[in-house]
Every structure is written in C-alpha cells, then in structure tokens.
C-alpha cells in the first residue's frame, strides 16, 4: 500500500480556513458567546451544539499529520484552540441549561416522532435534551463527573486523544479547569477523564448514557 506524501491544494486550503477560524478570538465562558462561525445548528435536536464543530473539525487535521509527519505545528496549534474551547461553559451549554424534563415535550414538531418511542410521544424528552437533574441522578453540574454526558466526555477524549497522537508534548495531562463558572469549576486532565470514563463503563455493562436516560451505542 502506498501512503500519500503530499497534501492536496484543497486540504491545505481547508487547513488555512480552519486555522483562521480556530484562531479568531471569541469567549466560550458563560458571560461570552462563541463566534457564529462555530456550527450550532446542524442536525437538530441532537448535534446542534457548538462543541460538535470542535470535534468534527479535528479529524482532518489529525489525518493531515499522517501525510506530513515532519511538520505538525499548525495541526497541534489548531487542536489546542479546539480543546481550549471545549473546556469552556459553552462546550456544555446543553447540560448546563436543560434542567429536568423538557417543558416543550408535549408540543414537539412531527419530525421528532422518529426519535421518540411511539407509546411515549408527548411524555418523553427528545434526544438532545440532556435533562440534567432528573432522578435517579439529580443535578450534576460537572459534565465530566456526571453519570450522563457520555457524548460530551467521549468526544472530548477523541479530541484530546488525536492531539496526543501527533504532538510531542503532553500539555493536556497537566490539570486544567473546565466550565469555570464560579463554584462550578472543575479540574481535570486527559488521563483523569479517560480513567473516570473507564470506571463508569466498568460499573455499567449496559453502557453510559449521553442525555440522561438514553444509552447510545457510542
């Protein structure tokens, strides 16, 4: 098998776009707001949150590093910008605003019917509603420590893992603060998140849930 040794013009053109996008200053803390170029609207209700853009933007740069292994600087710089944002409040803005059951669940649009068991229609939260605080878990403000939010910590680990595969340093194994909203500030590291999720999986043979009450295959 021949492994390509050159990036296409389009690949480099997209890298330049992503580099500018990732390095455009914005503020993912609670008082701030992500720049509108971060995609918070694709495939609602499940993926229409800005953190999904962070993870989905990471795949191409990690692949580019395979093609130019002697030049990794821009890829790591982009990944660091993506990871930095994923530590902010806006990375978990669903979990930190959607408490209890969805007050709109009796009036969902018809296309949600595909996503909700027929017998529960009108009385069940749609995927994408994270339902922080429902029983038996109660309110859990740390999206990493929470019983739920697998899709938050799992995709964050993908992002951290891709960086660790190409970088020559171990920056994100130094403890860093997440959410950073007054008393709701939580200290984690790459390894600590991975260990925590591994422990959660060991305790739950059926899998961990993403939104509260919903265990997905990934």
């Amino acid at each position: 098998m021949t492994i390509p040794t050159e990036l296409s013009d389009r690949s480099l053109g997209w890298l330049r776009y992503l580099y500018r996008k990732a390095h455009t200053p914005d503020d993912w803390n609670r008082a701030g707001r992500p720049h509108p170029h971060w995609d918070d609207r694709s495939d609602p209700p499940m993926a229409s949150w800005p953190r999904f853009d962070l993870t989905d933007s990471s795949y191409a740069v990690s692949l580019m590093a395979q093609t130019t292994p002697a030049w990794r600087e821009p890829y790591v710089a982009v990944l660091d910008q993506l990871i930095e944002r994923h530590t902010g409040w806006w990375s978990a803005n669903d979990w930190l605003t959607q408490f209890g059951h969805d007050p709109d669940r009796a009036s969902y649009p018809d296309f949600y019917r595909l996503l909700i068991p027929a017998e529960l229609w009108g009385n069940y939260d749609v995927p994408g509603w994270t339902a922080n605080g429902v029983e038996p878990w109660g309110i859990q403000m740390d999206p990493i420590a929470a019983d739920g939010m697998l899709f938050y910590k799992g995709f964050f680990l993908v992002l951290l893992g891709l960086r660790s595969m190409i970088a020559t340093d171990d920056r994100w194994n130094q403890p860093f603060d997440m959410i950073r909203d007054g008393e709701h500030s939580f200290r984690w590291s790459h390894t600590a998140i991975a260990s925590h999720l591994a422990d959660q999986w060991k305790k739950r043979p059926e899998g961990c849930h993403c939104e509260n009450t919903k265990v997905w295959p990934l």
């Binding site: 296409s8 992503l18 170029h37 971060w38 995609d39 853009d53 989905d56 933007s57 795949y59 191409a60």
Partner: peptide, 14 residues
Amino acid sequence: PRGQYNGFLAAAEV
C-alpha cells in the same frame, strides 16, 4: 461555512 459538515468533508478530502 457549516462547520460540522465541512469537518467531515475535509476529512474525506484528506
């Protein structure tokens, strides 16, 4: 440009 879709398309390009 729609970021999530562009992310997958760029990965496919690479």
